[in-house]
Design a protein around this nucleic acid. Structure first.
Lengths: 151, 151
DNA sequence: GTCCATGCAAACTGTTTGCACGCGC
DNA sequence: GCGCGTGCAAACAGTTTGCATGGAC
């Protein structure tokens, strides 16, 4: 969901917010980085360009961007949150328990699951979060594959 | 995965661990409770029966039970973790953003998704975590349904 | 008797907040 | 200039850890 600078300003304006240099910087770092950043990493990378930016601003900005739908928050490693800039198509994550690598993928059958659940339970679904975990190809090699499945 | 007391002792023994009264108590509370408990709630309920139990023991025990596969950890409310006793069949969760209610459901198409991903990406999947969020039937009524979907 | 498990309190991590100043508009 | 956004430091919540004692086996 990368936007031109003017459009971006409007987007902020529309909700009574201001487009500050810090917010622009943080959005930039998020969009440049293909991977999923945690707040600390985002802070470090932003600080490299603006040494005065504070961690509190990172958290506050992430909250704002999330509220505006420009950024998504994930609990990938169970521990702390990771954030990524929205790029339109919904997608899900596979996390390698060996090396921490994250693979994104789409899963068309999810539509079906959502429909089933929302019909059967009478709920309305606004968000779907799917996280698979296991071992990536490299890690399986490294470990001799003994970690794959319980059997 | 409810076990008899003797079998339970063996299960602990097999990994060089001991079956203490606290561990038995915590497992009991987890199994009795149909819902998903956070550490604090589990602590309070356990404390009602054994006023001397400490929160640290709750956390240490949960870590052990998780490692033994007797208990599962979920990040349901994004904030802090929830735990539930394993009951065999895998299942997924819907969380109501309005009232926090959790609905469990099964989703057969998940099998297909797992196969697709593991084949396409060459990974081996050991765990699948699916969390849908939205609004339950009651909350939709209460709010006049204006919260359902973006449209 | 050995050694794991516990209780307690202090430490730690990730995140949030109060306040005075600064900057977008 | 008004008011949101910022930096800083302190507060906070959830979780972990060091240490001496207690209990399982």
């Amino acid at each position: 969901m990368i936007q031109s600078s003017e459009h971006l300003r409007d987007t902020f304006h529309a909700t009574g917010r201001r487009l500050t240099s810090q917010r622009r910087l943080l959005l930039g770092v998020l969009e440049e980085s293909d991977s999923h950043l945690d707040a600390e990493t985002l802070f470090v990378r932003a600080k490299a360009r603006d040494p005065d930016i504070s961690l509190a601003t990172v958290y506050r900005t992430l909250a704002v961007l999330k509220e505006m739908g420009l950024v998504e928050e994930h609990s990938l490693g169970e521990e702390h949150s990771h954030y990524e800039a929205m790029r339109g198509e919904p997608h899900y994550h596979f996390v390698c328990l060996g090396c921490g690598k994250v693979i994104e993928f789409d899963a068309p059958p999810m539509k079906q699951i959502e429909e089933d659940v929302s019909e059967r339970e009478g709920v309305c679904i606004t968000d779907a979060n799917l996280r698979l975990s296991g071992y990536c190809a490299q890690c399986q090699d490294t470990m001799g594959g003994q970690s794959c499945h319980g059997e």
